[in-house]
Design a protein around this nucleic acid. Structure first.
Lengths: 125, 125
DNA sequence: GCGACTTTGACAATCGTTTTCATTCTTGTC
DNA sequence: GACAAGAATGAAAACGATTGTCAAAGTCGC
């Protein structure tokens, strides 16, 4: 039973944007992979913890995953129609968030920043 | 059957931070209000749509609500322990998000920015 | 008081996710 | 090879938040 880690990693590697666990599971089954939903979830969780993939929640509470190019801290610009994603950095935002936190006496400050929009392809039908 | 809108609004008004629907429902029942969970959800949804309360998702996918002081666009600095929330503004972030979107050809750009930390009270035990 | 319309809430249904647990590998050792 | 011990797997059940259903209860104009 060779590790399914690779299988899931592959599925993510060949995707443009964020994918849901169910979505990944479905496409793996579609291409004949014998894998269980449970395992997909487990592997996604492991990959997320190891920092290999990024996870975020959609507006309707679904967890979506993506294998990002860099392992550095960054944010995402996501097309809300096709899901295409661009990784962006914003040093200014990092500093701002940190400063705001400290200013109000908060410690261990973290932040979430995601940008959504309609990408060029989806905007011109 | 006087509208339950007020009941829910009240519950939020007397809270410091974000509260979950289930949480609000529980405390309403605790103080004797005869209200159903369904109705709490419905009213929260209505209040959110009308812009009277802000809604966001916690890390574990739960929706939490809060009656915010201003009805202008703003973000939140939330204590991850006690839930205490400070409303913050960040014009620079707004501009940055907009610029990043346009730069990549995205339109209808929106963004989510939330800052989490441990507040002064919770940090010093 | 009466009929039309709206609001409510108990309950069931949904849906993504997690747990459980027996089965199936893998690996190291004889 | 054979075998025991431990890790990985996946089917099915459990879970928890949210939403849908629908009949009962309330409101309003008359």
């Amino acid at each position: 039973m060779s590790t399914r880690r690779e299988t899931v990693r592959q599925a993510l590697a060949t995707s443009e944007g964020f994918r849901s666990a169910q979505d990944i599971y479905a496409s793996l089954r579609a291409e004949g992979a014998k894998v269980g939903l449970t395992t997909v979830y487990r592997q996604l969780q492991a990959l997320t913890e190891s920092g290999e993939v990024d996870m975020l929640r959609t507006d309707d509470g679904e967890s979506v995953y993506r294998a990002c190019a860099t392992d550095q801290h960054h944010h995402h610009l996501v097309c809300r129609k096709c899901g295409r994603t661009v990784e962006v950095e914003g040093p200014a935002v990092e500093r701002w968030a940190e400063a705001v936190g400290l200013e109000h006496g908060f410690t261990d400050v973290t932040h979430t920043v995601e940008i959504f929009g309609t990408c060029g392809s989806c905007g011109q039908p």
